[in-house]
Structures are given as structure tokens and as C-alpha cells.
Amino acid sequence: MRLTKNRLSAMVFGGLLCTAPGVQAHMPYVLPGAFDVGQRDHITVESAFGEEPFAAEVAMRDAPFSLTLPDGSAGEAGPVTYLRDLSIFEADLKTPGTYRVTTGQRLGRKGQMYRVNGQWVMRGEDGAPPKGAEPVAVQSATLADAYVTRGQPTAAALKPRGEALEIQPITHPNSIASGSDATFLLLFDGKPLAGVDVTLFRAAGVYDGRKIAGQIKTDAAGQFTLKPDDAGRYLILVRHRTTAPAGSEIPYRSYTYTLAFDAA
């Protein structure tokens, strides 16, 4: 797919200009070659931005890729190879257990959005801002995670960071089965985030036209439950816009988070 300058700019914002989940918005992702590696001691990982789940369009060139080790400590990703469409790296899995593979929190492009009565809005089709809209400066922030298990699943790597937008798995991601419920907790700065839209994408939807496998809002406790009906790879997408941390150059941030998993 050829990207125009305008489409590429919207993509690099990490979904900054999108108003509804799953609608013509690029998303970050990190995709390991396998989610259950058996006893292999390493994994190959790709990462990119794409409009479709796991369909690379532009490489993520400045992300602080890293691992969380099975004991919960920080680990390093291998050297990154940057192609035009995607980034690739290897990660060592020296000990058994579950690892979190992550892009790390990536700050992206700065731009302008609008707010009307506290709601985020876009320009109209004629390019003019909506009536009564307040222009605000916004910077994108993206984070993409996946969990990989060598041997038996463990839980230490699932512990939330306590910063920005993230999903804490309640159901272990490497134990999700097709046709069964999987429960998660949406957090912002370590606190549950209620009433936020969550979209579940199917990788196979690129071929059969059923890209969106589920849409739901988090409950009052920040939890949500999804049921992947088919076996295969899935991507959870969440977006949240709010004030930036104290001392930030830009007053607002548009956060995008994705979690990749495989339903057996």
C-alpha cells in the first residue's frame, strides 16, 4: 500500500486523529515469531505501525524495545534491524517462564486537536474546525506489548508498570483458548480506567473481511472480558486522551496501547 504524506503523518501520530476505534487508524504492534516457544532459548520479533492488524507499513525506528524477564526484572532486546516497513530484533530467553516483549513507551508526533464541551473532535470534511471548538496541542504516545512463554507460564512479567496506558492480563495471555473468555484490566498511571472503548482485531480478518472480533467498554472497575471465537492471532487496541504529565512540553497526550496474543 502506498502512503501519501497526509496518511503517513496521521499514522505517525499513532492514531492521534482517530475518533473511533478501528476506523482507518494506524496502530503500533509487536509480534513475536511464536507466543509459546517450547524450550527454544530465543525469539525473533517484528514491530511496526499498520492500518491492519500485524500488516507492517512503517517501521518503528525510535522505540526503546526491551523485555521483562520471568522474575519481573528488566531485560534487553537484541540489536534492531530497521527495514523500511518494519523493525526486527532477536531476544534471548535464557530461563523458563513468561517474558513481556515490548516497544516501550514511545513519544511521537505533535499536533493539534479540538475539544468541544470536554469531548475530543476532529476537523470537519471541509477542513474547518467544528463550531465552538477549542484547539489544543497534543502529542502521541504509543506502547505495544506481547507475552512469550518458554516452558510453563509464570506471572511476574504480567505485573503492570504503573505508568501511562496499559493492560494488566487477568487471564494469562499464553493460556487463552478460542471460544473461551479472557479477562483484562485497563490501567492509567496504575489506576483502573472505566468506560473506555476496547477493540479486538483478528489477524485472519485481513483475508476473510472479519477484521474486528469484538468491541466493548471497560466496566466501573476497569475490567473487560473478550472471547476470541477462532484460533489465531489477535490484537487488543485501546486509546485514551488526557492531560500530559507535569513538566511536559505539550499539554495533552493521545495514548495508544496494543496487546498481541495467540488463541490456541
Rank of each mutant, 00 (worst) to 15 (best):
A34Q: 13
Y99R: 00
P173I: 08
A263Y: 06
V12G: 08
V121F: 00
Y82L: 15
P28S: 09
V148Y: 04
A204W: 11
G209D: 03
P32N: 03
V121M: 00
M122D: 13
G15C: 10
G190D: 01
T258R: 01
T199R: 10
P96I: 07
A91F: 09
L200A: 12
P32Q: 00
P245T: 06
T95N: 11
A156V: 06
L69V: 01
L158M: 07
L67A: 05
I216G: 02
A59I: 05
P79L: 05
P53H: 00
P135E: 11
A25S: 14
G22V: 02
T149P: 03
I170Y: 10
L226F: 05
L69Q: 01
D41H: 14
M27T: 15
R106P: 01
Y252H: 14
K217M: 12
K217Q: 14
A220E: 08
Y82A: 08
A74E: 15
D62C: 08
Q139A: 13
V206R: 11
A137C: 11
I167Q: 02
E57F: 04
V148H: 01
A10G: 13
F261Q: 01
G132Y: 05
A263S: 14
G14T: 11
R2D: 15
L193Y: 00
L186H: 01
V30I: 15
F35V: 07
P169T: 07
I176E: 05
D36G: 12
G97I: 08
A177Q: 15
A194D: 06
R100V: 07
L83C: 12
A34T: 08
I170N: 09
A77Q: 03
G132A: 03
I212K: 04
T256S: 06
K227H: 12
G75Y: 10
A56C: 06
A144Q: 03
P251A: 11
F188R: 06
G247N: 11
E46C: 04
W120V: 09
G222H: 04
H172N: 11
R106V: 13
I88A: 10
D92G: 09
R239Y: 01
L158I: 00
G75H: 04
T242M: 12
A244N: 04
V148W: 02
F54E: 00
D229N: 15
